Simulated assay, not measured.
Amino acid sequence: MKKTLLLLTLLVFLSTTNGQEQYLNKDFGFEAVIPKEWSVYKETPAPTSNYMIIAWGMPKLYSEMEKEEIENSVSITCIKSPNIKDAEDLAEKDYKRVSGFAQKIHRQKADSSEILAYYTSSIIKMKSYVTKQYFIHRNGIGYIINFTATPGTFTTNQPKFEEFFKTVKIE
């Protein structure tokens, strides 16, 4: 009993000192480790839905290029649909969705041998964005893991996003 309590205390301490929190979504079968300094932006909708998104805001940083403080976002979108066959299909449907409201969009496949990934540049409401996206399809669920930034903040926060991505586990 004392060993179990000591181990539990140690795990809580390590979790706290690492400045991270575990996010678990049983309805869509995934989990991730979230840095405590990230804030939850939105989580939708109810568990009975075939769609959900959770988005986090990274700490703001000043961009010399944009001459303002920028809050980059990280999100995980999950879609249960018999109309999505695989990760390529999921990526194409997402590209068409974004193309519907972006004034300009360009997509380039990222070097990733195991997981389908793209870099997307877009202009939305006269602002430029760069997005790194991972597309995964498992057990009838499509997962889109996004990092969106401005051109002036992308290279600063992309390594933090990649560290986050390594913690994402999908059943």
Rank of each mutant, 00 (worst) to 15 (best):
M1Q: 08
M1V: 06
M1W: 11
L5K: 02
L6E: 14
L6V: 01
L7S: 10
L14T: 13
L14S: 02
N18P: 00
G19H: 10
Q20W: 09
Y23V: 05
L24H: 13
N25R: 04
F28E: 07
F30T: 05
E31N: 15
I34T: 04
W38D: 07
S39D: 06
E43L: 06
E43S: 10
P45R: 06
P45N: 08
P47F: 04
T48A: 13
T48C: 07
N50F: 15
M52W: 06
G57A: 09
M58T: 01
M58G: 04
E64M: 11
S73M: 09
S75T: 03
S75E: 07
I76F: 05
T77I: 07
I79D: 00
N83W: 11
E88L: 11
D89S: 14
L90G: 01
K93R: 14
V98F: 01
S99K: 07
F101V: 13
F101C: 09
K104M: 12
H106M: 11
D111C: 06
S113P: 04
S113N: 14
I115N: 13
I115L: 13
I115W: 02
L116H: 01
Y118Q: 09
T120G: 00
T120I: 13
S122L: 07
S122W: 02
I123S: 04
K125Y: 04
K125G: 04
K127W: 03
T131S: 06
K132I: 10
K132N: 08
Y134L: 09
Y134N: 01
R138F: 07
G140C: 10
G142E: 00
F147L: 01
F147S: 06
A149T: 01
P151I: 06
F154S: 05
T156D: 05
N157Y: 00
F161C: 05
F161M: 04
F164H: 00
F164L: 02
T167R: 11
K169D: 00
K169I: 02
K169R: 15
I170M: 02
